[in-house]
Design a protein around this nucleic acid. Sequence first.
DNA 1: TTAATTACCTAGATAATCAAGGTATGAACC
DNA 2: GGTTCATACCTTGATTATCTAGGTAATTAA
Lengths: 104, 104
Amino acid sequence: MNLQPLVLALLEGGPLYGYLIAQRARKKAGLKWEEGTLYPLLHKMERGGLVRSEWREAPGERRRKYYALTRSGHAALAGARTDWREQVKAVSRILLGGRHADAR
Amino acid sequence: MNLQPLVLALLEGGPLYGYLIAQRARKKAGLKWEEGTLYPLLHKMERGGLVRSEWREAPGERRRKYYALTRSGHAALAGARTDWREQVKAVSRILLGGRHADAR
DNA sequence: TTAATTACCTAGATAATCAAGGTATGAACC
DNA sequence: GGTTCATACCTTGATTATCTAGGTAATTAA
């Protein structure tokens, strides 16, 4: 399904940690989101420079690793939005019939 | 991207052979469709009972292997359409923002 | 007769995702 | 104090889809 764009979009509103990302995705989209997919993906995105991570700990709280979009992550998100709209159009044209789809 | 639903949709209008399916997909959707993907997919769909195939040859023409939807293929297509609409909604909600997407 | 297009195919590599675990901390309960 | 549940991170190995890069053979065009 290509989950990377969704991670980018969820991080647009500000830094989040992995566990929260998974929850948001489930809640917002009903996607079953395996942690075995999410964490390696986050690591890969960090290696690719799309996000940066930072451990945060407060006394009496558990450690959480927050991920934030980089400049290049913002750019990738913009590209992913365009790609998605085009993909919706292309697939819908074939799958749903003549009229083009409206991705919004 | 999951190409199987597209094959099912293209076959809805009547039997087609593989090479034509690839062309239609490219023309209709601008998808670069590798034959190394298409033929194994058709074989798998035939094993799964979604399509059946038949060689046709006319004098002075080349042999072509036509694929046609089975009853179960039609059912799978209906399911794929529903799935696609839901997926567009879910992904668009996260990726494009608040309002749900209209897959048609 | 040579080259391009049509039409089928396969084998191996790559990439994304899933399944199924593991570790450790904090909260809730009795 | 001990148990259990939810949180929060992670990895390894398998599965699956797709791509790359070929191969074969027949028809058409130059």
